[in-house]
Amino acid sequence: MRSVNEHINQSAQSEQNYNFAYLDEQTKRMIRRAILKGIAIPGYQVAFQGREMPMPYGWGTGGIMLSASILGPKDCFKVIDQGADDTTNAVSIRQFFEKVCDIEVTQKTANASVIQTRHRIPEHSLVEGQILVFQVPIPEPLRFIEPRETRTKKMHAYSDYGSMQVKLYEDIVQYGHIATSYAYPVIVHGRYLMDPSPIPKFDNPKLHMSPALLVFGAGREKRIYCIPPYTDVKSLDFEDHPFSIQQWDQACAQCGSHDSFLDEVLIDDQGGRMFVCSDTDFCQQRQGNSND
């Protein structure tokens, strides 16, 4: 086992004198403080001082800054994008941290201690000690109802969330059911309204009483918010239109799973299609394959 200093020295030598995990130590401490504050006030958006990252906003800079502040030399890191470990964004972020941290990486959910994610929560149940880092494009769930930040801050302060319910009301008016299917708003710990990032509402139940720590980072807007382990998370709904998750008639064409989130994939020019798990690791585990 190497000490942090040794590790830092070594990686600094090997990687053109970058600090461990790219960010300088003061920045990481500042972000950790914001995370701690976020954990202390579940669902509350904590402002932090974002840094320029070597990639554009929208590519997951918020998540990367959080991961960089959380990761230590002993961590095992996994990155998923739309549930897959092998998409461009996931691969480049994983490689980035391999390069600037020289840490172990994995595609297996069970092996990872820190998982950075975009658009999904892994199917494999998370356990205590794991941290899930979400990349968040727009942290403010009230944004589309009330564009003024001065107002939304007050709305949060006074739990003035009736207008969020209006969005769901409008859904039923238009579609006959609550059609919001991703970034489905939740109330955290009975207090703050929170945008769970653009995960499908299929994943919302996994937020509730999660044994893992869930941290959310928005790079462009420089906001961090958290759901500590075992926190009550309730998806908004109506008594007579209760919250429900997506369901499919098909099973996964590759692993036969009936209870995972499925992507529809076109397979030829004749309109042929199949449904497969969006979580590649989960699917391959079920097929008996191993990526590592």
């Binding site: 009736g162 207008s163 209006v166 009301y169």
Partner: peptide, 19 residues
């Protein structure tokens, strides 16, 4: 927001959750 939604919003603010 639709006319109905505009009228119903204050009720939702006061906690009404039955569509």
């Amino acid at each position: 927001v639709s006319a109905g939604g505009n009228i119903a919003e204050p009720l939702m603010q006061n906690g009404e959750r039955n569509y």
